[in-house]
């Protein structure tokens, strides 16, 4: 059915979009757990939603400057693993799987994790480290990628995430 609308009908829709907010909690540090959160946060920013990511527990590996370039694809304990666990458990297999995944991503022009974090920083997404997890792992903010400038408590995060749609990974 055809309807006619004026140009300014679009504005209220967008006003609504800008007030939407997503809060993503990344608690795992494997390659296959890092990308979903980062890509979802970036997609939110690209359509004008506010986005914040809270990195906690193993998720800190994603923003740890020394580890971010060496995240592994976790295939053990993963029922979707293309190879049987008896084989995946053999030495070198995880590195092989990780290498294959990275190659495929490169082919599809998917940025590596460090670049994804840079894009998120430039896109204005808020990235936070979990303070308790930082203490547990003996990390300082200076150990993290430059896009993360703050470690906050879980309660601080919920304050900031008020009204957001929450995703836990």
């Amino acid at each position: 059915m055809n309807t006619t609308m004026e140009a300014d009908v679009l504005s209220p829709v967008e006003a609504n979009e800008t007030s939407r907010k997503v809060a993503i909690i990344c608690s795992k540090g494997s390659l296959d757990m890092a990308y979903p959160g980062l890509i979802m946060a970036n997609a939110a920013r690209m359509m004008g939603l506010e986005a914040m990511v809270f990195f906690t527990f193993w998720g800190l590996d994603i923003i740890n400057d020394k580890k971010v370039d060496h995240l592994h694809a976790g295939m053990l304990g993963n029922p979707s693993s293309p190879m049987p666990h008896s084989v995946m458990g053999l030495p070198g297999m995880e590195a092989l799987a990780t290498g294959m995944m990275k190659k495929k991503m490169e082919k599809l022009d998917i940025p590596d994790v460090r670049e994804m974090l840079e894009i998120l920083g430039d896109a204005g997404a808020e990235l936070y480290a979990c303070q308790l997890a930082m203490e547990m792992f003996g990390l300082e903010v200076s150990d993290l990628v430059p896009q993360v400038t703050e470690s906050i408590t879980a309660m601080d995060f919920w304050e900031k995430a008020e009204g957001a749609q929450v995703v836990f990974i």
Partner: peptide, 12 residues
């Protein structure tokens, strides 16, 4: 890109 299209460069 975000300065040019603050309400979402991906769609705008």
């Amino acid at each position: 890109m975000y300065q040019l299209f603050p309400k979402g460069p991906g769609i705008l």
